[in-house]
Write a protein that binds this DNA or RNA. Structure first.
Length: 245
DNA sequence: CCGGTTGTTCAGCG
DNA sequence: GCGCTGAACAACCG
């Protein structure tokens, strides 16, 4: 569920509920979810891994974390964290974080930082990378303030695509490699999006969870790299390590 | 059946 | 007040 493209797929799947009134609310969320009852959904938005349900004076933020899931017009055995029922159909969210946002979402979200958004701004991402030259590439890609929506799969696939070692310092990358990193964060996210919709995402993985480099056939290294200590799969032969000093 | 994880926040500590 | 670490959350897959 969790990476940005999956949230955009969810947004597509619920389009028919836009403009519809929520007739009944249920769920084990500790938030005051009953305030949603009787309200009309104005829009669905997303920012990175955040899924936003917008009402007239507030929004609901759903974050699926690692284990979250949803069902549309069907439900699981377990009780939903949040269940929205309509005249026709229902949306059920499980094991997710539910938060209310009182502010205008356009005031608190920077759409230009979301790799899936029409307003994505590559130059702003480059500027943010320039001011943290010692950050490792694997940590930079997971930084939601720079690449909102990028998760661990996208991270591993982008770094392999551009042949950059995850423990490279972003400030040591040649200009061309830095451009590639920023651009592939978006391009791979859209590939992920298309493949996931066709249920062929996994078979396109070149690095993530892989044992052998598809290019030179030596064993991949698996390491919990960087400050984020997330699984990194990489080829020490093909992926170049760029270090400061 | 156990081990591991497409993620984030926060408490506790030095 | 800072950065770092580990816990917590709690579902599903292999």
């Amino acid at each position: 569920m969790p990476e940005g493209p999956s949230i955009v797929i969810l947004k597509e799947l619920v389009q028919s509920f836009k403009g519809k009134k929520v007739l009944e609310v249920d769920g084990n969320s500790k938030q005051d979810i009953q305030r949603i009852a009787g309200k009309k959904i104005i829009d669905f938005k997303s920012w990175g891994k955040h899924f936003l349900i917008c009402f007239k004076n507030f929004s609901v933020r759903i974050h699926f974390m690692l284990f979250g899931s949803y069902r549309i017009n069907e439900h699981k055995e377990t009780k939903a964290r949040l269940s929205l029922r309509f005249k026709e159909g229902e949306i059920n969210f499980y094991t997710c974080s539910v938060q209310f946002i009182e502010e205008d979402v356009n005031e608190i979200y920077d759409w230009t930082a979301d790799v899936m958004n029409d307003h994505w701004d590559r130059q702003k991402a480059l500027n943010k990378l320039k001011i943290c030259p010692d950050t490792l590439a694997c940590d930079a890609l997971l930084d939601q303030n720079i690449f909102a929506g990028v998760g661990n799969i996208i991270k591993n696939e982008v770094l392999f695509r551009i042949y950059v070692h995850p423990e490279s310092n972003v400030g040591a990358l040649p200009e061309k490699q830095l451009d590639l990193l920023v651009d592939q964060a978006r391009i791979y996210s859209f590939d992920f999006f298309e493949w996931k919709k066709k249920y062929v995402l996994k078979k396109h993985w070149l690095a993530h969870t892989k044992k052998t480099c598809p290019r030179c056939h030596i064993p991949f290294t698996k390491k919990y790299a960087g400050k984020t200590k997330r699984r990194s799969f990489f080829c020490t032969n093909c992926q170049v390590l760029y270090r400061n000093n």
